[in-house]
């Protein structure tokens, strides 16, 4: 598959703190221009550390990063100009007005004043009516929008969203997803971290899984789900069973719904999924069934199994 141009190249990135804690243990990653990349991992996995290094808030211990062709240390002006960052915590100047803080951000990034553009951002984020409000008067969701507006104020090519929907209610989360989708239409590359799998599943083109400072895997989301996805087959029985017949031991089926259903987990990638042989066996045993359904496992299941494997290894 032809790869698109990389906009961010991370190579051999490490970070150790004075305490000896290794937050990143040699991460390599390419982000393609225009994609939505979800960095997934449990709390403390190194997601925020990695973003903070790329954006300039934390110093790397080793390795290098280039952003839009600019080394983040030697040519930090070039790399930082290309990036808009929305951190996880709501850090705002409580007493400032919305429009002032967004205008300030644009100036901080060295861009000439452009009232029309600021107005457009604020309108897109439904903040225009609140532009003269002090930030402390806004709700949490609105504050997060202000932070996004600040990050977009200097027309970045890349937008980092660190846990954009952490602690946000369901409705706002949907809004946020819609917004991110719209941003992508404008050609902005989006990197988001999350520990909500649902979020990555909903939006991302590619998913990277990070755990204990190591990037365990990077994959197209659909390929990932196909590759690692397990399916479950639920057989709704005509008559409930008291126990799993020993003849079915080979399939390791589980009895569900008070013996009314049996569930069989199978790997879609396996040469023989075992589905037809199981159904034949049920027929041989004279176990009748009324319905069948299969279900694709979610990213969450994939993720849990990945992290689990990692721990076992």
């Amino acid at each position: 598959m032809p790869r698109m141009a990389s906009i961010i190249t991370v190579s051999g990135l490490t970070k150790s703190y004075a305490s000896g804690f290794q937050a990143l243990k040699g991460v390599d990653l390419e982000i393609e221009e225009g994609e939505i990349f979800a960095l997934l991992g449990p709390n403390g996995a190194g997601k925020t550390t990695m973003i903070s290094i790329i954006c300039g808030n934390v110093r790397a211990t080793g390795g290098s990063v280039t952003v839009a062709g600019h080394d983040i240390v030697r040519d930090y002006r070039g790399s930082r100009s290309a990036i808009g960052l929305v951190p996880q915590e709501l850090h705002t100047d409580a007493f400032e007005r919305v429009i002032d803080t967004v205008t300030f951000s644009r100036g901080l990034f060295g861009k000439p004043r452009n009232d029309a553009y600021i107005e457009k951002i604020l309108r897109d984020l439904s903040l225009w009516d609140k532009r003269h409000s002090k930030i402390l008067e806004l709700s949490g969701g609105m504050k997060r929008r202000v932070m996004i507006a600040k990050a977009l104020s200097h027309e970045p090519r890349i937008l980092f969203l660190d846990e954009p929907t952490a602690g946000v209610d369901v409705e706002l989360r949907r809004d946020m997803w819609k917004l991110i989708g719209e941003l992508r239409q404008t050609g902005v590359t989006i990197i988001l971290t999350t520990h909500y799998i649902e979020e990555a599943e909903e939006m991302a083109d590619r998913v990277g899984v990070i755990d204990k400072g190591e990037l365990i895997l990077v994959e197209e989301k659909t390929a990932l789900m196909k590759k690692l996805g397990k399916k479950s087959l639920t057989v709704v029985l005509a008559e409930p069973l008291a126990a799993v017949p020993p003849e079915l031991a080979e399939w390791q089926v589980a009895l569900k719904a008070d013996g009314h259903e049996i569930e069989y987990l199978f790997d879609t990638q396996a040469e023989r999924t075992g589905v037809s042989s199981l159904l034949r066996k049920l027929g041989d045993l004279g176990i009748g069934y009324k319905d069948l359904n299969t279900q694709q496992s979610s990213l969450e299941d994939i993720f849990v199994s990945l992290v689990h494997q990692e721990k076992a290894a």
Binding site: G56, N57, R80, S81, H91, A94, L108, K150
Partner: peptide, 14 residues
């Protein structure tokens, strides 16, 4: 103290 320094640190400012 408020954490808004993240923006200064991530800005192209020497």
């Amino acid at each position: 103290f408020t954490g808004t320094i993240y923006e200064l640190l991530s800005a192209p400012v020497s």
